[in-house]
Nucleic acid binder design. Structure first.
Lengths: 252, 252
DNA sequence: CGCCGTTTTGATAGCGCTCAACCCACGTGG
DNA sequence: CCACGTGGGTTGAGCGCTATCAAAACGGCG
């Protein structure tokens, strides 16, 4: 398939399908055509609303086409853990238990546009198309890599390193499209719940980073002065993790 | 297929293949026959030896047929994080980056017998057999669920809850075969590196649990007096996690 | 027997939490 | 136009959970 044709196919379609297919590697022209036949249900979710609740049966795969969301577990009234951040183009609905029930809540950080695709239909497609089947596996494996990084962060990094690594990650995941500042629709409370810290302590680390001139950030935007230095400060030796792993698709 | 035939097929084969297939659901007779044709390379790994090193290209899937191992990341000279525990029957080699390189070291806690299967061969098989393809996905999804639990543990549980939850997990993962005590070839240093705590503090929590009469454990065996009480003490409301998730295959 | 890895215990220090207060930006309604 | 409420950010004081350091006991193994 020529590059030209591929580009045409990729841009010609439904955004949800485009993102879904783009997350896979080595799709053939036929795979793309088949993907395009998948029916997509559109939904809009307001900020703060729950897209999917823990324990809900997941029969549809969700592609978040616009907006940000988080996947989080509530432990009790005063504790919750944010498991990952969902950026535009990310896919939701793969974290399920043995009965197909969601392992966590998905909550919109900003208004979201979501495309929903029947899991059954995707599975049928995967049977016919090896490219889609292995693409699904790619997506799952990438989630595993992300969990890995987060586990190391929570288990063995101190507060300063956690914040550095987190900001570095969020930065790198968006860096492909635009130089300069990136979106950051995240409160410090959210950061705290993601990093297993208290809000107050997150704030102290952020203040520290500002004093050191490493970052500029507010509720809207994040600017990183020296990405390499920030990544170094995140504790992962030679930036191997956040650079090659969480964002390893972008690296190709 | 009759139960009798299934039982026959499952027991008639190579242990590595048996475990591999058993980790999947809804395999047809044909799937099992095809699995049995996969060539298996046998390896033996001594205690403390490294089965697979971080960064190594993973071209073969490993089934640990006998023995225990851990998957761990070294951060620097004095810090490491253990990401999960590999028990007999577990599958290794799915945690890879975008280039197929291992994300972590796999280290044998006890002497291990490992069956190695060419990834390429498995992929070829998955193309022909939908059961195997979706079985592979099952395995990946189960790993995701495990990571989830561990993330919550590291992010939002205190030392006591972490130890309770950990012991509870190890117990539940083996409980299907034998009542009473279960294997526990794990030093407190290993527990510490898994739970993001210091050895000394792990020991204090274990001592506490012993004083409370909840567990008996040494370097060989773990006995849990009242599994329900221990699970309650792990902080997960209604034992939903460790019960339904990490071990959700056993629940079926 | 002697070595070494592991477990246990005490004393001390420090990282990060809690509580509390204050500030700011923003939206809402009178 | 201003009063007010609300959500988020910032800062200080004090405490508690967990780490670190140190030492001793234990147990397996050559």
């Amino acid at each position: 398939m020529t590059e030209h044709l591929r580009a045409h196919l990729q841009t010609a379609q439904e955004p949800a399908i485009f993102h879904f297919g783009s997350a896979m590697r080595d799709l053939t022209e036929g795979d793309w055509l088949a993907l395009n036949n998948l029916p997509v249900l559109h939904r809009f979710v307001g900020r703060g609303r729950t897209l999917l609740r823990e324990g809900d049966p997941v029969s549809r795969l969700r592609v978040v086409c616009k907006g940000w969301a988080v996947r989080s577990c509530r432990i009790d009234d005063e504790r919750r853990q944010i498991l990952d951040f969902i950026l535009p183009g990310d896919i939701v609905g793969l974290h399920v238990d043995g009965h197909g029930a969601s392992l966590a809540d998905i909550e919109a950080l900003t208004p979201c546009e979501v495309g929903e695709i029947e899991m059954k239909a995707v599975e049928r497609l995967a049977i016919q198309s090896p490219g889609v089947a292995s693409g699904l596996q790619d997506i799952l494996v990438r989630h595993l890599a992300q969990s890995n990084d987060h586990l190391v962060r929570l288990g063995r990094m101190n507060a300063y390193e956690r914040v550095c690594g987190f900001l570095s990650d969020i930065y790198t995941r968006q860096k492909d499209h635009s130089p300069g500042p990136v979106d950051f629709p995240i409160t410090q409370t959210i950061v705290a719940d993601a990093l297993g810290l208290s809000v107050v302590h997150v704030n102290r680390q952020v203040m520290q980073l500002r004093r050191e001139g490493l970052v500029t950030l507010n509720r809207r935007q994040l600017t990183i002065t020296d990405p390499d230095r920030l990544a170094d400060a995140s504790g992962f030796r030679d930036r191997k993790f956040s650079h090659n792993r969480t964002t390893y698709l972008a690296a190709e």
